[in-house]
Nucleic acid binder design. Structure first.
Lengths: 107, 107
DNA sequence: ATTCTATTTTAGCAATATCTAAAATACTTA
DNA sequence: TAAGTATTTTAGATATTGCTAAAATAGAAT
């Protein structure tokens, strides 16, 4: 009988854990979470997001750059404004679970 | 007609986002993720976890204290050893999603 | 070309995270 | 009670985060 190894090697586990860490660090910030939640309902420009989330444009811009760099969002300029949009199915999946846990009306 | 407001107030959203941030910060570390993953299969003592994860006992102990403080794990002493166990359904739910995303054999 | 608006970038600071090394605690066994 | 084992706690060093204020860019309108 072939001996199938169902558990991950330590190296594989570390690799996966590091990837997950990088991903989770992007989400582990209240302001970035609110940004992402606002983008779930469709693309928005920076000014709109800044107002919705209550952040200075500079601070927000830095968060957006980070999220974009991590591949969670994309941007497109149209005229004066730059529109941001969610582009990560993984982020959407985790956001959905978080919403179930933290945004229930009757906890 | 009564006007139902389906969207969260800004304050409620901020509150939920802050809770989610606190929760996610606990998970957003490769070593803590590996600890939690090891505990998914049942309780373990500190030495066993330290070996499995490859951390010094002191470093691990600090992570365990943090996770315990956050209510994700509990501990019980039996004799010389202290056994840790996962106790958060929320953590288990997110861990399960992360496993689907980051621990697939063929990504 | 100059000016205006939207956004980004840079620099610097205060707070937080995470490790190591050393000291302290808790229970067990001789 | 003394010594041994498992674990925690503390102190300190280094790195990362996330803000503000100021300067820089990019495209639009005059």
């Amino acid at each position: 009988m072939e001996k199938r190894n169902l558990s991950l090697s330590h190296e594989a586990m570390q690799r996966h854990a590091s990837e997950a860490e990088r991903f989770l660090k992007e989400l582990a910030n209240a302001n970035r979470l609110m940004v992402l939640c606002h983008l779930v309902s469709g693309e928005k420009n920076v000014g709109d997001i800044a107002e919705a989330v209550g952040l200075s444009q500079s601070a927000l811009s830095q968060h957006l750059a980070r999220l974009k760099d991590a591949g969670l969002i994309t941007s497109e300029r149209r005229g004066l404004m730059i529109y941001y949009r969610l582009c990560s199915a993984e982020a959407q999946a985790v956001l959905a679970v978080l919403q179930l846990i933290f945004c229930r009306e009757h906890p």
